[in-house]
Nucleic acid binder design. Structure first.
Length: 500
RNA sequence: GGUGACGUGACCGAGUGGCUAGGUAGAGGUCUGCAAAACCUCCUACAGCGGUUCGAAUCCGCUCGUCACCUCCA
């Protein structure tokens, strides 16, 4: 591992060299979606960032266990719909089993993430599949004196937790007293809480509530932050290496996660490195459901949105996201996507060009290739330097374009390949491929339509036939046969069929 | 109100106390049957005002502007 990777840790607000707790094993947890509606572009950023992160960690030789959960117990909706969660609400509206709603959106989510080139997580746990673990964690927290039950609901006691010197707020940089003064006062279930800062670990289900489970405190459902703590502990141990999600999850979600882990038998911050990706904005404003300024994946991929002049392929979107550093906001616009689209194509063309770099026959290799070799090596190093610096894909991509320019120069003037050694060239092209395909996860998306290309070929076939150029006719027929395609001369014209 | 972030050329978007970011767009050129691609050259910016410094877009202060979190949110 010659490339020291450092990552920005929200917990310390600093970039730190990444050191796994139990190398070579690395545990990574990403807070996944609540599956009560279709994902929008903003929801894609975290998964893409974490995908690159886990790909790179693996490239560095680590053995990664990547967990990305699916939240199928809807968190409570806003003040207006007290006590009913999003998935229940959606299910009621559509007259479906809640699980059906969750399953449907989870399926779509997986499809979209796969299209974006995100490798499937190693474990994709469901909140509903871990009710027992969550109940157990609540019991531990109660035993340790940091939670209390009221009317079948259980709340986390933030003030007591704090008095014990645990520092609630250490992740998000919040001070409990300020939170008190600044908090809005009309939140759901506030009357049951001893302090407005307290948060629910378990909520009692009223008659209308569809999703419910038995518990020591009666029928109910788990609290908003508990599942991640419980599932992270189950699959990654008491302390995982990296835990993350969107910046907007930092508070209260991740803050509460840490508190739960600390207050249970884990006694840890749950993860060593807390990683938060910034938001996607639209005209400078955060893209979010509540602002209504979001574009869903399907709308984007199919170009069905007023602000889009065309459809953008998943790979273009991925490249677009990777052109920015994950801790910066990235502004989403048609123009930006258009620019990204061209850049992405350029990178892909490069992937094919480098296969053809070859010193022309008869050209003598230079006696001294040291300078050119060193230049190639430097260009590759720049790419890795970007990744190592807090996963700065923007820098890595920029460096890749510099490397590509070098390759394209060779491509235009193959004789200049003589300046570098074969070994250095191979090393550099291999690095380009690894970086683009394996680490950034960008794959070529062929745009050409096979049927249309076939039609074109058959047209040439027909032309050759009428010109009685039988040599060409035979060539075409043979070539298509190799593809498993049979050319059929019919009275009506040329047709084709798959060879049986 | 509290806390925090940011303001980079036509657009997107990195970065840094002194050395080319990169992509897209635009201009010129090489190449080319035409075209495209690619390559070369150009357009060279860091909100404003002060301060620190040999030197700041990069550090500090103020002003203006934008945004985020504090409530579900990636």
């Amino acid at each position: 591992m010659q490339h020291p990777l450092s990552l920005h840790n929200t917990l310390t607000r600093k970039k730190e060299p990444f050191v796994p707790v139990h190398a070579p094993f690395v545990g990574v947890y990403l807070c996944g979606p609540t599956v009560y509606s279709e994902a929008h572009v903003g929801n894609a950023r975290g998964p893409v960032v974490f995908d690159v992160l886990t790909r790179y960690l693996r490239q560095l030789g680590y053995s990664v266990r990547y967990v990305r959960n699916i939240t199928d117990v809807g968190h409570l909706v806003g003040d207006a719909d007290e006590g009913e969660d999003k998935i229940s609400k959606m299910a009621r509206a559509q007259k479906l089993e809640p699980m059906q709603v969750a399953q449907d959106y989870a399926n779509r989510y997986r499809r979209h993430m796969e299209a974006l080139g995100c490798l499937p997580p190693d474990i994709e746990p469901l909140a509903t599949g871990h009710i027992i673990e969550q109940i157990q964690m609540i019991e531990e927290i109660i035993q340790n004196g940091f939670a209390y039950e009221v009317n079948g609901s259980v709340y986390f006691d933030v003030p007591r937790y704090n008095e014990a010197g645990n520092g609630y707020g250490k992740l998000s940089g919040r001070v409990p007293e300020e939170l008190l003064s600044g908090s809005r006062d009309n939140l759901a279930g506030q009357d049951e809480k001893r302090s407005p800062l307290d948060f629910a670990l378990w909520k009692k289900a009223d008659e209308r509530h569809l999703m419910r489970w038995p518990s020591p405190w009666g029928e109910g459902f788990p609290g908003w932050h508990l599942e991640c703590s419980a599932m992270s502990r189950k699959y990654l141990g008491q302390v995982s290496d990296i835990h993350g999600g969107g910046l907007d999850l930092m508070f209260p979600h991740h803050e509460c996660e840490i508190a739960q882990s600390q207050a249970s038998h884990s006694h840890t911050d749950e993860a060593r490195v807390w990683l938060h990706n910034n938001m996607i904005t639209v005209n400078g404003q955060k893209m979010s459901k509540s602002f209504g300024n979001f574009i869903t994946m399907s709308e984007l991929f199919e170009g069905r949105h007023a602000s889009l002049s065309q459809a953008y392929s998943p790979m273009v979107v991925r490249f677009f996201l990777l052109q920015a550093h994950y801790r910066s906001t990235v502004d989403f616009s048609d123009e930006g996507l258009k620019a990204a689209s061209k850049g992405y194509r350029k990178l892909m063309n490069g992937l094919r060009q480098i296969e053809r770099l070859q010193l022309p026959e008869g050209t003598e290799r230079a006696a001294d290739t040291a300078a050119a070799d060193a230049e190639l090596r430097k260009l590759v190093q720049d790419c890795y330097a970007g990744l190592n610096d807090d996963l700065n894909t923007a820098r890595a991509v920029a460096a890749l374009f510099n490397l590509l320019r070098k390759f394209n120069g060779y491509y235009n003037q193959p004789a200049t390949l003589a300046q570098a050694s074969e070994a250095a060239l191979q090393e550099a092209t291999a690095a380009y491929r690894t970086l683009v395909v394996d680490i950034l996860g960008l794959r070529d998306e062929p745009r050409a339509n096979a049927e249309e290309l076939l039609g074109l070929t058959l047209q040439f076939y027909a032309e050759a036939k009428s010109a009685k150029d039988y040599a060409k006719v035979d060539t075409i027929r043979a070539a298509l046969k190799e593809q498993g395609i049979l050319v059929k001369d019919t009275k009506a014209g040329v047709d084709w069929a798959y060879e049986e």
